[in-house]
Design a protein around this nucleic acid. Structure first.
Lengths: 256, 256
DNA sequence: GCATCCATGTGAACAGTGTTCATAGAACCC
DNA sequence: GGGTTCTATGAACACTGTTCACATGGATGC
């Protein structure tokens, strides 16, 4: 139709969208656009129309590549552990390796706004995520955990990961909408609320109120991780390292 | 206007909605209706219009009593521990008492279809739920847990409760929509899927596949609970009962 | 070179959603 | 009886996910 080497005559109106610029729509591009919308507008406003608009395309075009919104969310969930390296299970270090796994998961969940809500209600049984589950189980096996414990340990760890980051991002979201002040402001608000409770009816809540402002989320996450690991280690059938028998019964010192 | 003791004359047509029958709309009635809709139609179809229809009322009528849908969901969440009794903390039995707390929570979450999804994303810091949180903390204190551990233990336990039941009801929902066969059918499907994985790349997943059909959800929940309790107990500063020192370091036998 | 085909993107439509608001109505107090 | 207050109504707005007949454009076959 148009000669590439010829200058376009002035009367010929330029096409609205120049042909060569028009990169074809793919699942990957849709997922990328969905992340852009998610990070900018949050989970509530993540709609098929917004994703389409981000790509400069009409809604129904998406449905050629994606069956429905749920499938798109699943594709997003599938990228959770992309480029997360999987270390060889080391029986002497399995506890730290499991912790690293959980830390990487949390980091990825916090990397995108509301990503925890996307992951919630999904199960890592896709070809992309199964290898990571397998690797986690290998760590448990290296630690000498009996099979039934292995079978529940994965759930336990991932529900903690997701639940904890979910709560984190919930507060972040709540802070975002009450635009006033900084993160410290809202934390003071929370602490003030707990401190204002009648101490005779809520002695423990009041006494813990201070901790909620003193301790960082990182510290709280690590502590919960330690609790889980200790519980798991107490089930280890054999010492996780030949040279250090019984270590799983006497874990690291409590971080009081 | 109308005399209560007089018989109604035959020419007086009855009102379309007899006046005394018309019970006034209240928050409680709205919440009850919402649960009816939730149990019948599930979380996805729980809409303000459906709730209104259940009450024989128009949508906008609800907004007189409830600010928005989120608030309605929060009211539903608030009923989670209604009529759950709170036992006095017994230092000798704190582990069982904590387990009972979690069991009650799971039972309540499973009592209504998709209730786990409603609870997800809410935080038990309402006047109705705070007493239960306080009681849980009292159990931890009775167990001699240091304050920082107490502060995270509640989150750990409730994320496990919610995450576990969430997964349970997810499978239940997936089973509901693929109407074919019984619960055993879908469990066989899952097991077949895991067994069909290449054993050289997924040795641990394949080896665990059998457990997923052999073990009941109840058993798996209890095992996860044990793991958490053991981890918590390992932080106890003093024996939870003067007469039984060291029990927290040697919990019950592993259920292998 | 031409015709055909197929997949990709279009625009309109459908059925539904949460939420708001002026209006009608009942109930209550003075 | 009159007036005020509160509740329920119906219509409307701006969205949502999803479907479908239609155009369009690039590759393929002849």
């Amino acid at each position: 139709m148009s000669q590439p080497d010829m200058p376009t005559p002035p009367w010929e109106r330029p096409r609205k969208r120049p042909a060569p610029t028009r990169v074809p729509l793919t699942r990957d591009r849709i997922v990328d656009a969905a992340f852009v919308v998610l990070d900018r507008d949050g989970y509530e406003r993540l709609s098929m129309r917004q994703v389409a608009a981000e790509l400069g395309v009409v809604v129904s075009a998406l449905y050629v590549h994606v069956n429905n919104k749920d499938e798109l969310l699943e594709l997003m969930y599938n990228t959770l552990f992309d480029d997360v390296e999987l270390p060889e299970p080391d029986p002497a270090n399995w506890q730290d390796q499991v912790k690293d796994f959980a830390r990487a998961g949390r980091r990825r969940l916090l990397a995108h706004r509301d990503m925890a809500r996307v992951s919630m209600g999904h199960v890592p049984f896709t070809p992309e995520l199964l290898p990571h589950v397998e690797k986690l189980l290998a760590l448990f096996r290296a630690g000498g955990l009996p099979a039934p414990v292995m079978a529940i340990a994965g759930d336990l760890l991932s529900t903690y990961m997701e639940g904890f980051t979910m709560e984190e991002s919930m507060w972040a979201e709540r802070y975002r909408e009450m635009d006033a002040g900084s993160w410290e402001t809202i934390r003071d608000e929370i602490q003030k609320y707990f401190s204002s409770l009648p101490p005779d009816r809520f002695p423990n809540l009041v006494s813990i109120a201070e901790l909620m402002v003193d301790e960082s989320n990182d510290y709280r996450f690590e502590l919960g991780l330690d609790i889980i690991i200790r519980g798991l280690a107490s089930y280890a059938e054999k010492p996780e390292h030949p040279g250090h028998p019984g270590q799983q019964e006497k874990p690291a010192e409590p971080q009081t």
